[in-house]
């Protein structure tokens, strides 16, 4: 049998979780609801990470963008350093 434990949550949150469990149909437990929410959260984070990585990979594969960004970055850093010393 899986180890179980108790977590303290505000009553309003428990009620919302219960409502979600009810929507899930007979036999859906609060543990099922929490597991589903965790899965959705992980999927969202993975989707965001993949989208960001795709954007950076596309930019890194563009030699013109890489060259321009490098020049701009050097100027941007110089700008910051000039402010810091003045």
């Amino acid at each position: 049998m899986t180890d179980v434990t108790t977590i303290k949550v505000p009553k309003a949150l428990r009620d919302e979780l219960n409502a979600l469990a009810d929507e899930g149909g007979r036999g859906t437990t609060l543990a099922d609801v929490l597991a589903q929410l965790l899965e959705e959260h992980r999927a969202k984070v993975t989707r965001e990470r993949n989208a960001a990585e795709a954007l950076f990979a596309k930019a890194a594969a563009d030699p013109d963008a890489v060259a321009k960004a490098d020049r701009i970055a050097r100027r941007a850093v110089e700008f910051l350093q000039t402010r810091k010393t003045s």
Binding site: L55, F56, D62, A65, V66, A69, A73, A76
Partner: peptide, 21 residues
């Protein structure tokens, strides 16, 4: 612009991040 995939802005962000800005 970054969200729209502007490659210069995207690469600049990567570049500044690498410089710990």
């Amino acid at each position: 612009e970054f969200g729209r995939g502007n490659t210069v802005v995207t690469q600049l962000i990567a570049n500044l991040d690498a410089r710990a800005i």
